[in-house]
């Protein structure tokens, strides 16, 4: 028995029940190999960083589980046969699963989170305010699990980062605006 994490992307251009079925199929395959799911997360529909098969969005879901190694072949076959899956990745987790769960996606707790995150890729670095709000979410989660010693440290990091990046960023933004003019 080994711990694996499988993440896959489903074509979102179907109804929700079909997507749920695709997710459930994967779950059943894992169960068929004596699998025990440790953590599951649905990141929902989000924008793809690059186009795949003409699609710009994908529905992300992920399972962290312990199973026999024959599950890998079964999953691979399943993903290859079914065209609804546009990407899949299974990795062996060698770290402590507790650590992994702690870092797992911040959207996981807020339900399916579909259509939440669509225009996030548009701005590269200027989304500081948005990021910080998300940081807060994360901090709250962290508080529930661990003592809150992280908070000042992280703030310091953020501040340091800002000072470091400030000149570069301004240069970047001027660059990009120049570019837009050219276009």
């Amino acid at each position: 028995m080994r711990i694996y994490e499988t993440t896959f992307v489903i074509n979102p251009q179907t109804d929700d029940s079909t997507i749920d079925k695709h997710v459930k199929d994967v779950q059943e395959i894992i169960a068929s190999s004596n699998g025990k799911i440790i953590h599951e997360s649905a990141m929902g529909t989000r924008r793809l960083a690059y186009e795949i098969k003409g699609l710009t969005q994908g529905y992300y879901a992920s399972f962290l589980y312990e199973a026999e190694s024959d599950v890998l072949g079964k999953l691979d076959r399943h993903f290859k046969i079914n065209e609804a899956y546009i990407r899949d990745l299974t990795i062996r987790i060698e770290a402590d699963p507790e650590d992994v769960i702690k870092q797992i996606d911040p959207f996981g707790k807020h339900g399916s989170g579909r259509d939440n995150d669509n225009d996030d890729n548009s701005s590269n670095r200027r989304g500081h305010s948005r990021d910080s709000s998300r940081d807060d979410d994360k901090k709250e989660e962290a508080k529930a699990e661990a003592p809150a010693e992280e908070k000042p440290a992280e703030k310091a990091v953020e501040a340091e980062e800002k000072t470091e990046e400030a000149p570069a960023e301004s240069a970047d933004s001027s660059d990009s605006s120049d570019e837009k003019k050219e276009l």
């Binding site: 993440t7 992300y60 770290a95 650590d99 870092q103 797992i104 996606d105 911040p106 990021d131």
Partner: peptide
């Protein structure tokens, strides 16, 4: 200890 490859941020 673990860097989540799904965390775009």
């Amino acid at each position: 200890n673990y860097i989540n490859y799904k965390d775009e941020r």
